[in-house]
Nucleic acid binder design. Structure first.
Lengths: 223, 223
DNA sequence: GTACGGGACAAACCTAGGTATAGCTTCTCC
DNA sequence: GGAGAAGCTATACCTAGGTTTGTCCCGTAC
């Protein structure tokens, strides 16, 4: 998992974050680019939403800095499109003539910040910092969950049945009864599940099933 | 846990939600009160932040509707005070003369919505509905977690040690080795833990320890 | 048609988990 | 100074979990 590059010279693109800028005002793009590069961030700037969408999604922590008012597709539209496309890169909005409903909509949709022009350098740098940090966490979590999910998908349907009952706390014999199987069969599936899921203990398996959203009926806790 | 009143006639205050209004404009208070009552919500209205704070915190799902501009303590200040006092009732702001930074601050601090005057009835009703729903969920989660936490606090320090190692997936003998104990001792503690925590299975116990934030070193998942 | 994977089971065997009973020390509270 | 709780262990015993080897049925893909 945590294999870093083994070579001695430090590699400078392993998880070097990128800031994407979308603003139709070239001078603004230049100013922001200079600002971000001055603190050592990689930058890619675009003049419109479609240009951004054509760029390949990056494989490093990143964030978007969007002008609300863009030609064609507005910043808010772009936010919605990205969400629909299941792209959850954190977004910072910049606006010259924003209003409150716009702000509320953007923030409710998960924007990190919403800054008004003229933007103070420190404000946007702070926002970008926070956005990248959030993206890093999101990516970490995502990687973990998708590993678990792909293992889960390698299970046969019977194995999935057993997994859900076992992680809900039933004993092998109870699982067997519910599925109409012999206890030994459950034991064998259980072993296969542990192997396929890469779980080293039942505790592991329970946590994985939590991550996958496989829940029993209700959250226990009775006297 | 889930002891409801046992009497036959349906009790109408068991979890009847309440909307708290804080606005210095009496006519606004009246209008909002009428609006909310017209859809069957209980309402308590106040003219200033201190008045609200003197009222007893309710034991039902609720939400706050705050004017941003209040005499003395502003709506945003009140939001911060409540957060500091660990009161997390969802807040809906209403403003006549708000600006974007204010909106951003409120939303970042967790406000449900931020509406501008004149407020459309449907907008505020939707917001209140969403706020109460969120509060219901928050309260449910809270109740569960605090039950688990109080049980955890009834454990002796050794039992806690064992709990954290067991739920991290170690076998009894490994736990024993790490704590310098005999395996039998671990077994006995383990039994006491299950009893005190009210866990019916190891899976239960693992989920409880997750809820308590007792994590092992790292999130496993290796090949 | 046979090779393959999923599904199901049995016998044999071993390890891990869990309880009951009993006994020991140490510390604290009244 | 004795009662009680926490902490620790031993013997004995039983149940649950888990692997291996081998067998059988079924469907389907080549």
């Amino acid at each position: 998992m945590t294999e870093r590059a083994q070579s001695s010279p430090p590699e400078e693109d392993g998880d070097q974050p990128i800031v994407f800028i979308v603003d139709d005002d070239a001078s603004m793009r230049r100013a922001l680019t200079n600002l971000f590069e001055s603190v050592g961030l990689k930058v890619e700037a675009f003049g419109s939403a479609p240009q951004l969408l054509q760029a390949k999604p990056p494989d490093v922590p990143s964030c978007l800095v969007l002008d609300i008012r863009l030609p064609g597709v507005s910043g808010l539209d772009l936010q919605a499109d990205l969400a629909k496309a299941n792209i959850h890169t954190p977004i910072i909005f910049i606006t010259g003539h924003g209003d409150i409903p716009m702000t509320v909509r953007a923030m409710k949709s998960g924007a990190i910040d919403f800054l008004t022009k003229p933007v103070r350098d420190q404000d946007i740098l702070d926002a970008v910092q926070a956005a990248i940090e959030r993206d890093r966490k999101r990516r970490d979590l995502n990687r973990t969950v998708s590993t678990v999910r792909s293992r889960f998908e390698s299970l046969s349907s019977r194995e999935r049945d057993v997994l859900s009952l076992v992680t809900s706390g039933l004993m092998n014999k109870q699982v067997a009864a519910q599925l109409g199987l012999a206890e030994i069969t459950v034991k064998i599936y259980r072993g296969q599940i542990m192997r396929k899921m890469g779980a080293k203990s039942l505790a592991d398996l329970v946590r994985m099933s939590e991550a996958l959203g496989i829940r029993p009926n209700k959250s226990d806790i009775q006297t």
